[in-house]
Amino acid sequence: MTFLNEIYAIWLREIRKSLANKWEIFISILWPLFLIFVVGIGLDSFIDSGQIGVNYTELLGPGVIAILAMSSAMSIGNSIIDDRRGFIKELLVAPISRISIFLGKILGEATFDFSINLIVAFFFLLFINALNLVSMLWVLFFMLLIAFGFYGFGIVLSFLFKRARGYQVIRELIMTFIVFLSGAFFPLKNLPLIVKIFTFINPLTYGVDGLRNVLIGYSEFSLILNIISLLVFGIIMMILGSYLFQKSISN
């Protein structure tokens, strides 16, 4: 019972901190919608995407949702670095277990990020006239899968690059590679082999493909392969991430 209370306390703090900045919330919803609709509709006006059976806006939507799940998950590293500069002491000196600090933080960030992503997905599905409960649940499911791995990945990165400034630059660079080599902006099947190899080892590729499969019915891999790839990536990153987190706060 107290364990749950501890997690709840940490969770609530994350939520309150997120809600404190109203403009940030507004922009984080508006920006991806802008990307999907303005870029999507713009490119649709002169690209003939008939060869794959869906238009560009439809192709882009799931890609953007996957990118959102990935990037918001990765940002947990920021919050950990912020706390490590000071606030972590207030947490460490309190009579609560270390694991509830870890879980509370992840759950708090996830609740907020998932709400934003679901709102974006809601408007996208509404626009392509495919809004239904099953689709929303699929979005939630893939968001969980993607976030699971990239939360871990964000934590691992934040511990590898201790100083925040260096971390930002490296994170941006890595995220750029992950985003553009995930097929979020274009189908993979006509890519040159060397680029294809990079997309295959990129975990986000399977998130993008999985979301397309369940939302617009277009895909290049099987759904099972998508789910298993994301799961394996997630388990490895979580084990590594929680190990590093525990190690850093226990000395």
Partner: peptide, 27 residues
């Protein structure tokens, strides 16, 4: 109870929220 040498508060939150969080940590 501990008051640290450097300021350790959630700056983006109000005074009440800061104390409320602490009260929850200490149940």
């Amino acid at each position: 109870g501990l008051v640290f040498q450097d300021t350790i508060l959630d700056l983006e939150l109000g005074a009440l929220d800061n104390l409320d969080f602490h009260a929850r940590l200490y149940n």
